[in-house]
Design a protein around this nucleic acid. Sequence first.
DNA 1: ACCGCCGGGTGCC
DNA 2: ACCGCCGGGTGCC
Length: 908
Amino acid sequence: MSWLCRPRKGGVDCRNYSHNSSSEFYSSLGLEGFSVADTSGTVEEDTDSAILYGTLRGSIVGLRYYKGVVNNNEMVALQREPNNPYDKNAVKVNNVNGDQVGHIKKELAAALAGIMDNKLAVVEGVVPYGAKNVFTMPVQMSFWGREENKEAVLDQLKMHGFKLAPPLKECGFGSKWISGKTGPTYSAPVHAAVHLTTEQLKSEFDKLFEDLKEDDKTCEMEGAEAVGTLLLPHQKQALAWMVSRENSDNLPPFWEERNNFYYNILTNFAVKERPKNVLGGILADDMGLGKTLTTIALILTNFQDGKPLPVEKITSDKSYEVRWKKKIVSQYSKSSDLGESEECLPLQTERSSFNYCTASIQSVEKKYSEDGPRTTLIICPLSVLSNWIDQFEQHTSQDFHLNIYIYYGSDRNKDPAILSEQDVVLTTYNVLATDYGVSKYDSPLHKIKWLRIVLDEAHTIRNPNAQQTKAVLSLEAHRRWVLTGTPIQNSVKDLWSLISFLKLKPFTDREWWHRTIQRPVTMGTPGGLRRLQSLIKSITLRRTKISKVKGKPILELPERKVLIQHVTLAEEERQIYQSVKKEGKVAINRFFNEGTVLAHYADILGVLLRLRQLCCHPHLCTNTSSSFSVGSNTPEELRQMLVNKMKLVLSSGSDEECAVCLESLTLPVITHCAHVFCKPCIYEVIRSEQPNASCPLCRSELRVEHLVECSLEEELNSSNGKKGGQEWISSSKINALMHALIELRKENPTIKCLVVSQFTTFLSLIENALKKSGFVFTRLDGSMAQKKRVEAIQCFQSSQAGSPTVMLLSLKAGGVGLNLTAASRVFLMDPAWNPAAEDQCFDRCHRLGQKYNVIITKFIVKDSVEENMLKIQNKKRELAAGAFATKKPSASEIKQTKINEIKALIDL
DNA sequence: ACCGCCGGGTGCC
DNA sequence: ACCGCCGGGTGCC
């Protein structure tokens, strides 16, 4: 219990980011002490665009009253202490470990207080010398902030009689002092940050994972007896690496031993006790290489001192019983994949029978009573929960029994004593966050010290302010693993949560992460990327599908070819297309001339959607609930119009991102100015900009009471917009598809195909054509119940004669785990906005288990919006390749990108 | 703190 | 002397 009550260092700690107004906001509620960690995501994240204003020498006083010590050249943190009873301007000075060293002298503190409270600048300190002083010591301060705040900061300092020295070359990162024998020397970063070109960054990034196969990462290790599956060579390597990391007593990265002290060469912090290495790391293999299997092998193989997990060996008379139980587990799993809300839970009976099982298994005589913790906690998104259960079932030998508890569902057992008796507890990020949200102190998963925690698809916690992230970061464990196929999605920033989870000192504290890694990288400081590289390298194992083991490709995947098949519209189709295009172009031109493009963003997406639909089939384009009228009607009409616009944006398949968090929309809401954001994101913007918040995209007034959300019924109603008895006709695209399918059938009637579209109504139209030509087909889309999905997949994957040869697939159906290797042909009926979504879809058949070369055919209508979409896709690919280490785009940059996209799409 | 600063004691040479 | 100077007490914010 004790670790829960203690204020936590290294959790989400925003000391230097705390905001005056927000602390007042919370203290008015009597909540001070809880507030600071909850500061908005918008203000503090701007630290990426900070420039160095200058430096100032000051002094730290009161050293004799505190135990925190520093070394010469060590970085220190300056932290406001507004509740200090002697001086409301007080500024504390802490060392890297978070121990207080002293205070900033009061005259200087008086000047700093306003600057820090109003977040005009971030003030960072380094103690250049005098670290052994008894009463006072000097501190060299650097002032960082956004260009527009520079004057205000200089004025503020001047008022108190201080003046910044020009940013000396060497003190850009306070790194003059860390050069010493070990650290790299930085030269002239400061004002004119050397921004690397995209290509340079990209190649640097590629190097990040080079040489990873060297070191000790090529040793192989066999799994324990209880691992029922033979591991592939690269999986044995991963197992060996993971086991060695769990049992290692090496120093963590950037620490060195020097005469009985341990030095951190980035911050110059020293401690007497040997810092513990991360007993874990990041397994960042590409998907399909078997991260799940390897992790299961790890759990079974490395319990304590390199000994296997003492699992129960099953005697033959028991094995029937257990097999039967395993069956129930898998049944449970297959119905649990719908959504995270409690309503979508699997059937009560199935769950309770499973829980009953676990209980009965626990009553079986216990062979082992270990002192330390024995349980591994696995946290994953709901969509892969069932995959874990399946894989445990598949890969644990039939002769052994693992106690696995699925901590999910409203009747989950919250007794920590029961949970900590399991071998494995499986749960989801949302369940964890929900428990934690109800009460940090009653959350059962937070009461247990785990043997090991595994975060699957760990990039789901890349937002440090998300409740899920906070919940994950405050779990206790000996060993910590992060599984992800995408270690760095958008920027270095995304790494922080992961590094912090791994408890890598001193990076658990965002300030140190930012000063030592993030800023040097984003500013392009020479050596910055190398530093990040050596950090990543020391804790990460990453192989891609094309990596090699002993000169051989890791996975011998068949070839994958993408062909573009141009389609010419028939005359009548072309006419409709042209007239809709003309009409849309006139409207969009008007928006451009009026400068109201963004205000009509949803309308424009609507035009583009209609054009894309017309490329597929004229019948798709009947949802012409044109919302061009902007007449201010009754509030209810206005609301309905906004709901319609939002539905348009959401259904347009444009994969809209929230401009605040840059991720796909969760709980979308629409503003009066018709821009769609995540509800929590926009609430945060409104709160942090109070009293006068404005839309991040267009700066118009923003008020909570003006936000409109789409109720669940409305969403449902819109999705089953079934076509009434319209008479079936074909289309040019369908003809092209059918031609290809029939040719293929002649060639080889057993080849299976995926026919993919973003428009489920289009899939329905294609059904007609398939029926007419006598194809046996099945279908998988997002609206299907879990049971039906499983049926469809099993049916399609079957190699039996008469099994379907075609699967109609909606582009985003199914999670990453979806396995459709029976297909070796893909027909992509319409291009997606986001090329990554297409690739993901292709990977569902082009993956481990695929026996044939995969040929993908993209149908693209000539002289249409589809051709332009291909261009945008290419641009996005380039962008994604170079996205690493670039800073978060501002709202105005997003705006510009969107405008450019629109221009490119409608060829203006 | 081998400082600065404060405030009481003190007062030609 | 409503000063200077001395020397003891004292010391973060």
